[in-house]
Simulated scan of single mutants.
Amino acid sequence: MSRRLAPLRPLLIMSAFLLLAACSRLDLAYRNLDLIIPWWIDDYVSLDASQRNWLEPRLQKHLAWHCSTQLPEYVAWLEQSLELSRRRQLSPADLRGQFGQVRGAIRRIAVEITPTVQDLAESLTPRQMGELYVALDERDAELREEHVEPPLKQQIEERAQRMRERVEDWFGPLRSSQRARIDAWARGQGDYNRIWAENREAWQQELRRTLYGRHTADFPRRVTALLQQPEDFWTPAYRQAYRASEAALAELLADLFNSADATQRNALRARIREMVADLKGLACYPG
């Protein structure tokens, strides 16, 4: 997982991290979020002692809220996924419903942390703002070098490899026909990397304009919109590509599941049950 995530949205990744990532020790990672999140922030801006002292109790409050109210939702999501995995066949529509629940989880976190993000942003000094902008530019350059500048053929090959690794973490070894299906999906995504990078940079430009006016009366409204309705700032190209990409992913996962043999389906169910046990075993989990 990349070290440099957007500094003003560090808690937003928790939902996707818990619901989608194939972490071998989910419980260990979650227990250390109070250390990991400040580390991510430090990758972009160095907070002074007073800012750190101010942030710490708010971070603990957010984490307590997340554990007591959101983890049961994730367990319910996983248990629903387990029920789906017992079907003989899945449709893309079944999986798109699951995707929608992930988006809802991310949005709930955005709403929870917005006041803290607003107050932290208002406390940034001009020096810290400069540090933030330099870090954003450096990270954008790294992402473009890694994901956009290579020839399209290489991008597609790397995209397919990443997906094969993710799927194998859930299903175990894939058959040649399943690997070929992933390869076809990767080709179908085409120039998605460039569209994604341009959209990310467009959102950041709006972030910069919003932070420049962080001491104006309109700042709370603008930062709330950036965090809670990021899709309102998508580029037209990304809006179209995102819809197509989500539909293609649902079709891919449905095809992979429907082609899975008994061993692969058992591996999938065992992986889901392992994640449920990890979450329920956390000390902060309700009950």
Rank of each mutant, 00 (worst) to 15 (best):
I195Q: 07
W170T: 05
R187S: 12
G190S: 03
Y242G: 04
D218G: 01
L124K: 02
R58N: 07
L84K: 07
A64I: 10
R103G: 13
T116P: 08
T116H: 06
E56I: 14
S46N: 11
L8G: 06
V111K: 04
D140M: 02
A21Y: 13
L211V: 01
P126Y: 11
P150M: 12
P57I: 03
T210I: 03
Q161T: 07
D255L: 13
L211T: 01
L33K: 14
T114H: 13
L136K: 00
E112D: 13
M14Q: 15
C67A: 15
L268C: 02
S85E: 04
R3H: 09
M14L: 15
M163F: 07
A248I: 12
N193V: 06
F219M: 00
P38N: 13
L152P: 01
L279H: 04
Q154W: 12
V45S: 01
L33A: 14
D140I: 01
D140H: 02
S259Q: 10
I156K: 05
R58E: 10
L279R: 00
N32T: 15
T210W: 03
L227H: 00
A277Y: 07
E201N: 06
A93N: 07
T114C: 12
M163H: 04
Y242S: 12
E138Q: 11
W39S: 13
Q118S: 05
M163T: 09
I109D: 08
R52M: 11
D183R: 13
P92G: 00
R209D: 11
S46H: 13
G190M: 03
Q189D: 03
R108F: 02
E168S: 10
K153T: 09
R96E: 09
K61N: 08
P10L: 12
L78A: 10
E198N: 06
E206D: 14
V134I: 10
R127Y: 15
Q51D: 02
D169G: 06
L124A: 00
M14Y: 07
L211P: 00
P72V: 01
L19S: 14
E206A: 14
L33N: 09
E79L: 03
Q80E: 06
L12D: 02
S46M: 11
I195S: 04
R164N: 03
N32Q: 15
S123E: 02
Q240T: 14
E112Y: 03
F233G: 09
L249N: 10
Q240G: 09
R271H: 11
W203H: 14
Q60R: 15
A270H: 05
D191K: 04
E146D: 03
M14K: 15
G281Q: 12
M129N: 04
D137N: 11
E112K: 02
A244M: 11
Q98A: 11
L26H: 12
A22L: 08
T235H: 06
S81A: 14
H66G: 08
A202K: 06
L63P: 00
E145V: 05
L11D: 01
L226S: 13
D27M: 14
R4D: 06
W40Q: 08
A184Q: 12
E165Q: 08
M14R: 14
K61D: 07
A21C: 12
E131R: 04
E231I: 12
A184Y: 02
N258G: 03
Q155H: 03
R3F: 12
A237V: 09
L11V: 00
W170A: 05
M1D: 08
V167R: 04
R209Q: 14
V45D: 00
A76N: 03
V223T: 04
E158D: 09
